[in-house]
Amino acid sequence: MSSVLKKIGEPSYTLLEYVVLITLMIYVLTPLLWLLETSVNTDPTPYLSIPKGITIDHFIAVLTNRPITGGYAAHPVYMTRWIMNSLIISGTTVIIVVMLAALSGYSLSRLRFKGKNLLMTLILLSGFMPRMAMILPLFKLCRTLGFVDNLIGIAIVVSSGTLPTQIWILKGFFDQLPRDLEEQAWICGCDRISAVFRVILPNVGPGLAVVAFMSFLSGWGAFTVPLILIRREYLFPISLGIASVFIHNPGEIGLVVDYGPTCALAVLYAVPSIALYILLRERLMEIRLARLEVR
């Protein structure tokens, strides 16, 4: 019975697989067609249309800060500035998160004390309050600290949000590293810190790559925090910049917006995330979150 099923089943599985795969691809790609089409169409519209001609002019417009119309008024254009800002925010976030998550992840992996599980739990719970409910306190706090209209300040706030998960991920990598290695380093004359830098960190490369990638994404995609903390348009990251070009209500689509350059910017925005993901795909699959220790 089962062997008969198997004979009939096997080939059609493959066919079924491709059918499902193609359906999924269509589902994923169709909404994006407009975005891609508009970014290269000589005559961009808010809807999908067969391009009259293909051009890279919109990308050039973005990269040369050509004036753009959209939203409520013609915009002063800071597109390259926005790209820079996004890079500064995500770059700083990566540096802060990788450094702090590495140090504290290592420490939590090696320290033994009562209440460690509680501390780990608290760290993970730290993100329990929805950002939007914290807007006012966060704004007041950041104003006191001078983080308003401050890209580094934004990066610090964004880092604090992604740190808990990253600490957990890195602790998992440290837990897996054999203790022998650092003990050998101490025996060879290293103190705690130099052993970490000379022996431990070089051997959790995959973990650091994963954390770097994920913290880059959280900086690159940051929207709420800059929305609360940035007033000046030339300090916008890309996400906020694009939002400012479109008017608020998507239901009222069709108002005059320079769709070409905006879509081109959106396409440019997608490139780093996808490139990094493909580069680090295998590494990302190695993620093992830390476990609470049972003692």
Binding site: V28, L29, P31, L32, L35, G221, F223, I238, S239, I242, A243, F246, A266, V267, Y269, A270, S273, I274, Y277
Partner: peptide, 8 residues
């Protein structure tokens, strides 16, 4: 792709 383009 979907998660790589800006949420906006």
């Amino acid at each position: 792709l979907p998660s790589a383009i800006p949420g906006i």
